[in-house]
Computed example of a mutant assay.
Amino acid sequence: MAAGAINTTAGSDWGKADFEAIYNCPDPRRYFTTLQPLDYQIPHHGQAVFRAVAETLQRCRADRAPLDVVDLCCSYGVNAALLNHRLSLGDLYDRYTAHGTGVPQTRQLAREDGTFFATRRRPGAARVIGIDAAEHAVDYAQKVGLLDHGFAENLEHDEPSAALRRALAGTDLITVTGGVGYITARTFARLFDCVSSPPWVAAFVLRTVSYRPVSDLLARAGLVTEKCTTRTFRQRRFADDGERQAAFTALAGHGLSIAGKEDDGFYHAELYLSRPAADAAAVPLTELLPG
């Protein structure tokens, strides 16, 4: 498949286009050059929310500094870059689409990225563990310093390795911006088997996908799940008419209207935050979220 091409004939179970070819490249350039024309923006929304959640959680757990954050479906470490560095998603698009996919070579780009991110790191940055089945993406994110630990493991299919179990023990926060649907409650169950105490979970979930199986699992672990009811968050534009129609069909199946949301040509995600009941009572979701 040519660089930037999208396979829309073999998508996910809920009709999404297949971007598999861009998720496991040696470096992030093909990922960004493919997604930029679709105005992929959910990590931008995640940046504001995850920073606000992390700051609130840090106040709740003042003895835990820095926080241990686990980013699910971490790909090339985009969420970690935006959480821990003085950067915007636009900065990353500019960086990785400027020269196409030909130059510089991946090894040189990785060296340059190591310096680029190190000089923009925010004070009090969280420790980030990234988990993704795409081994090249995880390796790149770890190599350039975005991930403190990276694990190319598929928890839908396999139990976590001994090393991952050790790394997960002190988890404070789990984040995910687009993976739910590809990963299910099975992945979350395996994660929660490894933690010493229930972490917070902040998840952006497409409206075409039900979060109920995951929130039910988290409830059994002692967490209360709240949904942001004041807005939804654009993920990206539909790749083509087939993807749009599949999304509309899925939404109708959930009894959801597209008016004012997906009828604008974008996938829309909802934000869910799961916390222990005492934490949820202490800081209401409406006060926690950025304006």
Results as ranks from 00 to 15, higher is better:
P213G: 14
V224Q: 04
R166I: 04
D216G: 09
A185N: 08
Q235L: 14
D241G: 11
C194S: 03
R186V: 07
V214W: 02
A219M: 12
D240H: 03
V195P: 00
R237A: 05
F192D: 01
A239M: 08
R207G: 07
Y211M: 15
A221S: 04
R237G: 06
R234A: 05
A239Q: 09
L206F: 05
P199F: 01
T229W: 14
R220M: 08
C194E: 11
L217V: 12
T232Y: 03
F188H: 06
R207F: 01
R190L: 02
R231F: 05
V195K: 06
G222D: 00
P199C: 03
D172F: 04
E226R: 05
F188D: 01
T230I: 15
S196E: 14
V224P: 00
L168W: 06
A169T: 12
T175A: 10
R212D: 12
R212P: 13
C228S: 14
L217I: 07
A167H: 02
A185C: 10
G179L: 05
R212V: 15
R190Y: 02
A167D: 08
G170P: 00
Y211I: 14
S215D: 12
R234K: 04
T225D: 13
V195D: 00
G170A: 15
A203C: 11
K227R: 15
P198F: 02
W200R: 00
F188W: 11
A219V: 05
L191N: 07
D193I: 01
F233S: 01
G222Y: 02
R220I: 03
T225E: 13
A239V: 11
F204T: 03
P199H: 02
R207T: 03
G179Y: 01
V214I: 13
F188N: 01
T229D: 12
A221C: 00
A167C: 08
L168E: 06
L206G: 01
T177V: 08
R190V: 00
Y211K: 11
V205W: 04
I183G: 05
S196T: 09
I183R: 08
T175K: 04
T230K: 14
S215Y: 07
G178N: 06
R166G: 13
C194V: 06
D193R: 14
G179I: 01
F233M: 05
A221R: 09
A202M: 04
T177M: 10
Y211V: 15
T184N: 12
S197R: 13
R236L: 07
